[in-house]
Amino acid sequence: MAEPADVDGEEAPAPFELYALRYAVHGGRAPADNFLHADPHDAGSDLAYFIWLARRDAEIYVIDTGFAADAAAARGRTLLRTPSEALRLLGVDAAQVEQVILTHLHYDHAGTLTEFPRACFHLQAAEPAYATGPCICRPEARAVFDVENIVDYVRALYAGRVTFHDGDRRLAPGLWLHSVPGHSAGLQCVRVFTRRGWVVVASDATHLYANLARRNPFPIFVDEQALLRGFERLVALAPSLDHIVPGHDPAVIRAYPAPHPSLEGIAVRLDEPPLLSWQELAR
């Protein structure tokens, strides 16, 4: 049931539909690939790669733009469909989308920008400051970025199609950006009001359910302490743990219902209650 008002005291806005769309996967991962403090006796978890869609009548917000075949080949990922192909399955034409939220600029979240030629891109100002600044002189720091994506971002910037945010910001009634740096310098999560209340799309503030449950970070970050504080921020923003959606957990696909039988394994509705409890998913 939808909440009567949001946490900021506003009257409850009209709810968004909210979807996760899986476009790629990566298997054969060891525990140390997914946890900073890994137990070698644990089984490794695969990763799933998602973009997200918030839709309310004619309002459309795409969250992240994924990657395409060139990045998949270069990094050994299995591309199931391009992000624009995934959106098309829900009746959304990437070429017509006007609002795109980039949670951060890592290669798997900010590729295919040219597939969204009409979009305004929303991101935290700290993210491109890091991605184009002195830290990127270090090969280790730039490994998670794709230079062509950054060039596409700069072209969008020079075309007047980037909106910067510095901290938390309401983009629309029922849709908020929240700064959760740590994994990247300007990571933001997205809080969306749906018919089941507020849902927090965590993106890489927690890759897997288990990262948050164990307070055990994914081993790619710019600031470990900030990342740990981000875990607590996610919990504070969500009505319950069942309202937090991690950025890369393959369990998301089985945790929520598909919008149509033809989309099983491709898309799920995050505005529906989960089919499994958070505790089950975090094992």
Rank of each mutant, 00 (worst) to 15 (best):
G66M: 11
S240C: 03
H109L: 08
D242I: 00
R214V: 01
L228T: 08
C137W: 09
Q124T: 04
V92P: 11
A258H: 11
T132Q: 05
A185L: 01
L177C: 02
Q225I: 12
D152H: 15
D8M: 00
F116N: 09
C135T: 10
C137A: 05
L36N: 01
I253T: 14
P15R: 02
E140A: 09
H109V: 00
L89I: 08
F145C: 07
G197H: 01
P4C: 05
G9Y: 00
A2F: 05
L177M: 08
A38G: 08
D46Y: 11
F121H: 06
A236D: 13
H106I: 13
Y158T: 11
R170Q: 12
N149V: 13
L228Y: 05
E17R: 14
D57K: 09
G111S: 12
N149I: 11
W176Y: 00
R191G: 02
D242T: 01
A236V: 07
D108M: 02
V235R: 14
A226S: 12
A12V: 00
L47F: 11
V192D: 08
L105P: 04
L281P: 12
L275I: 03
L113V: 13
P173Q: 02
H207M: 01
V201R: 04
M1Y: 12
R118W: 09
V201S: 06
G44I: 12
L157K: 09
V190M: 01
R233M: 09
A86M: 06
R214D: 12
P15L: 10
L47D: 15
